[in-house]
Amino acid sequence: MRAQHYMLLGLVPIIMVSAFLNGWGTGGIFQAERLFVSSIIPFFLYSVLINSPGRQRVLMWICIAAALGMVYNGHVQQSSFNGSYGAGIGGSITVGREEMRISYLGFFSDPNDLGMFLVMNMPFVAYFFARGGKLMKLLMLAVIVALGYGVYMTGSRGTLLGTVAVVGIYFLINNAGAKLILFAAFSAPIAATLIASFGGLSSSEASAAGRLDAWYDGIQMLIYNPVFGVGMGNFIDRHGIVAHNSYVHVASELGVLGYSLWGGALVMNMLVGYAILKQFNHYSEDESETEHADETLVEKYREEVLLNKVLFYSMIGFMVTAFFLSRQFTLLLFIFMGMQMASHFRLLKMRPSLLEMFSGKMVWRSMGYSWTVIVAVYITLKVGL
Rank of each mutant, 00 (worst) to 15 (best):
T372Y: 06
I41N: 10
A142E: 11
E253N: 04
G106T: 06
I181A: 11
F186C: 03
V125E: 02
D294N: 14
S109G: 13
V267A: 06
L381A: 04
S203K: 13
N308R: 04
V310S: 01
N174A: 11
M357N: 08
G177E: 12
A87R: 08
I276M: 12
R211T: 05
A209F: 08
I40N: 06
M341A: 11
F44L: 15
L307A: 04
S252F: 03
G155T: 02
P226S: 12
T290L: 15
I64N: 01
M136N: 08
G133D: 07
V375I: 15
V272C: 05
G317M: 03
N308F: 07
R365G: 00
H249N: 09
V310K: 03
A251M: 02
G255S: 04
C63A: 14
G90A: 04
Y85F: 15
G162Y: 07
H5M: 11
G229D: 05
N281E: 13
A243F: 06
F329Y: 14
M16E: 03
N121G: 12
K361Q: 06
G132A: 10
S288Y: 10
I195W: 08
L348H: 08
Y283C: 01
L222G: 02
G264F: 01
I14E: 02
M140V: 07
G106K: 12
P111G: 07
G338P: 02
A275N: 12
T193R: 05
Q4V: 11
V17H: 02
V250N: 02
T296W: 13
G218H: 01
L257T: 05
M140K: 00
G115A: 05
T159G: 02
F107W: 14
G25E: 13
V383A: 10
Y369H: 09
Q220P: 05
L354P: 08
G210R: 07
D237I: 05
L307I: 13
A3Q: 09
S204N: 14
G338L: 01
S246C: 07
S359G: 03
D113V: 13
A275S: 15
A146Q: 06
G69D: 11
G54D: 08
H5C: 04
M1T: 13
L160A: 12
V151L: 04
I223T: 09
L306A: 15
I93V: 14
F198Y: 14
V248K: 02
S246Y: 05
P42W: 02
T26A: 14
F129N: 00
T330A: 13
L222C: 07
M319V: 04
L331H: 09
L35Q: 06
R55F: 12
F129S: 00
I41T: 07
Q4L: 08
V230R: 05
S92R: 04
V227E: 03
D213R: 10
R157V: 02
N22C: 08
P42E: 09
M120G: 01
L325A: 08
H249T: 03
V248F: 00
G258I: 00
